[in-house]
Structures are given as structure tokens and as C-alpha cells.
């Protein structure tokens, strides 16, 4: 178990480095990983090393996506639902969390959170099977605004967008956590009502606003 944990953490470490564009071995070695461990990942077919640069193999990429998905979902859960705001403790918790989540539990959390697309830091959460099928076996706590039906109300829990300009636009219009939004119609475009404002927004934006349903 302990060994597996380290193994997963190493994949995660390398994956995050690659995601950020730092692919040289020396960049990665600065962290809590030894050259031997990197070599062993190579032998297990997780990575390839080409001129001191590390790349994930197809298998490695899949492994990494699973691990990072668990990690970032855990962050969302801790941050948005359990509202643990302390950065260092929630980060550490998320690290512990990711190792004992099996696929079913991961999918349940993902569904519970309304299939979020980014972590609280704005990094992408790779979609799992539950995100594409959108199975509704488990009742979500938080829904993305576009999944509400016409006439339903939701109070904004958080806005998860990679694009700061959208966040700024929404917040200057008055759409912020705590604001109650009603879906007026969904076709031909989403029209929402909040306070005394009627507004139309793209599905892509509605997808990034997460709400708790209200009656």
C-alpha cells in the first residue's frame, strides 16, 4: 500500500510538471523523487525519456488522469462543500484522499459536485465516465446551472472558470456566490433571472456556474 502510494505520487508529480511545461529531468529531480524512481517508472512503461526530457506514455497519461482527477475532485469537495479554506490543510487532505478513492466513490463525488471541470485553483479536472453519461443515479448537491430545468431556482455555490474575464464580467453583473438565480428558459438560449435582472448567457458560461438547488 505504502509503496503504491509513493508510486502514484511520483506519477502525479511528473504529470503536473509536464502539464506546466517543465519536462526536463533536472526540473523534476528538484522535488521529492529520485533518479532511480524515475528510471523505474520508465521500466514500467509509464514514461519515456528522450534527451533528458520526460514524456508520459499513453498508459502513463491514463494513469495520471485518473490520479489527478481524484486529487482535484477531492480539492473541490474540501473547498466547496466542506468549506475548508485553509490552503495547506486542504492540500494535504486532498493528497491523502486521492489514494483511497476507488472509481465508484470518485464518480459519486464527481456527481455530487455536479461534474465540475476545474479544481479550485483553476486547473482542469479530466472528465470521467460519469461526466459523459451524466448518470443521475446519485442526487447531486451542487449542479451546474445548465443542468437546471426552466423554472428551477439555484443559489450560486461557486463559479469555476478558467477564464478570469468571464468571472469578472459575471461578478460585476452581480452574479456571485450566494445570489439566487432562476432559469427562465433554456431554448433558444439560456435566460436567467436574478434580483431584478434578466440576462442571457451561453451554455458554456452556465456550465461553469455551480448552484445549490432551491425550491
Amino acid at each position: 500500500m505504502e509503496k503504491d502510494k509513493k508510486y502514484e505520487e511520483n506519477i502525479e508529480l511528473i504529470g503536473v510538471h509536464i502539464e506546466e511545461g517543465r519536462v526536463k529531468i533536472e526540473d523534476i529531480l528538484d522535488h521529492d523523487i529520485t533518479r532511480e524512481e524515475i528510471i523505474s517508472l520508465k521500466e514500467r512503461g509509464i514514461i519515456t525519456i528522450d534527451a533528458e526530457k520526460v514524456h508520459l506514455t499513453k498508459d502513463g497519461r491514463e494513469m495520471y488522469n485518473l490520479i489527478i482527477r481524484r486529487h482535484r475532485l477531492a480539492e473541490r469537495l474540501l473547498n466547496d462543500i466542506l468549506t475548508i479554506k485553509d490552503e495547506s490543510s486542504s492540500e494535504a487532505q486532498a493528497c491523502e484522499f486521492e489514494h483511497f478513492l476507488n472509481t465508484d466513490v470518485t464518480e459519486s463525488i464527481c456527481t455530487l459536485l455536479g461534474h465540475p471541470t476545474t479544481c479550485p485553483h483553476g486547473k482542469p479536472i479530466p472528465p470521467g465516465e460519469c461526466c459523459s453519461t451524466k448518470r443521475r443515479e446519485i442526487e447531486s448537491v451542487v449542479y451546474s446551472l445548465d443542468s437546471l430545468d426552466s423554472g428551477e431556482n439555484g443559489r450560486v455555490a461557486y463559479i469555476s472558470t478558467h477564464d478570469h474575464s468571464i468571472l469578472d464580467k459575471l461578478s460585476s453583473m452581480g452574479i456571485m456566490p450566494g445570489v439566487s438565480i432562476r432559469i427562465h428558459q433554456k431554448q433558444p438560449a439560456i435566460v436567467i433571472l436574478f434580483e431584478e435582472t434578466t440576462m442571457s448567457i451561453d451554455f458554456e458560461i452556465a456550465r461553469e456556474i455551480y448552484v445549490r438547488k432551491e425550491s
Partner: peptide
């Protein structure tokens, strides 16, 4: 750009 428009009465 994304579509976002206010609808005055």
C-alpha cells in the same frame, strides 16, 4: 467571445 447580454424590460 462568449455570449452574455442583459435583457432590459
Amino acid at each position: 467571445s462568449y455570449f452574455m447580454i442583459e435583457l432590459p424590460p
